[in-house]
């Protein structure tokens, strides 16, 4: 465990908590893509099945449980408790265009052709693109609440920190996981446009709105 990995995990946790608190405090999930949140719940579910088969550390197990629980809580708030505020008309990304190719790819390109490993690979690939419905929604409405941009910033920062963690681990531990690295690079690239807007607009106190 190096500092980049730890701050990456904490950044991920911060993103998840920010989103939950935003929805809970405002009693509204306006501007949030339920589809992205469903995909993240699927990502955590398929990745953390190893909770049943292997124990790595107390830290590892507790973080996994927290991520899974929070992602299900978020989906519950969006689709059940605050369903009336869910902006389904703008959440129109076709998730089958992500899930089907990602599912196929995880069968073709994986470390080991076993059920658990294929599901892990599926979750890694799916996570890299799971934010697309949310970004699509923002591009459609042309704006995002500031708190939503903080959520996206920490979510993007997490994978960027993991990239540095992988460089670190390659040099100091000889660890290299091509699947995770390639997917992590793709995932981080998807946030670059958003990072630019976040730094140039949100951090200067302006609301994130896109030109019409």
């Amino acid at each position: 465990m190096n500092i980049f990995r730890l701050t990456g995990d904490l950044s991920h946790l911060a993103a998840i908590i920010i989103l939950l608190l935003k929805i809970w405090k405002t009693r509204s999930c306006a501007g949030i893509s339920g589809k992205s949140q469903l995909l993240f719940a699927l990502v955590f579910t398929t990745r953390y099945l190893d909770l049943f088969t292997s124990f790595i550390s107390l830290y590892n197990t507790s973080m996994k449980l927290i991520y899974v629980a929070c992602s299900y809580a978020t989906v519950y708030l969006i689709y059940m408790k605050f369903k009336a505020t869910y902006d389904g008309n703008h959440d129109t990304f076709r998730v089958e265009f992500l899930v089907v190719p990602v599912g196929g790819l995880s069968f073709l390109v994986n470390h080991d052709f076993s059920p658990l490993e294929i599901l892990w690979t599926f979750s890694i690939y799916l996570e890299s693109v799971a934010i697309l419905p949310q970004l699509f929604m923002i591009s459609k409405t042309g704006e995002a609440e500031t708190i939503t941009t903080h959520y996206l910033f920490f979510l993007g920062l997490y994978r960027a920190l993991y990239l540095i963690n992988w460089i670190w681990r390659y040099y100091f531990e000889g660890f290299f996981d091509l699947i995770a690295v390639v997917a992590g690079v793709v995932q981080t690239i998807l946030y670059c446009d958003f990072f630019y807007l976040y730094v140039t607009k949100v951090l200067k106190g302006k609301k994130l709105s896109l030109p019409a």
């Binding site: 990995r5 995990d9 991920h12 990745r47 190893d50 088969t53 292997s54 790595i56 550390s57 590892n60 973080m63 996994k64 991520y67 994986n110 470390h111 080991d112 076993s114 490993e117 892990w120 993991y162 963690n165 660890f175 290299f176 996981d177 995770a180």
Partner: peptide, 10 residues
């Protein structure tokens, strides 16, 4: 890295 050993990252 042996895949069967599991993944230590989140």
């Amino acid at each position: 890295q042996e895949a069967t050993e599991g993944h230590d990252e989140l």
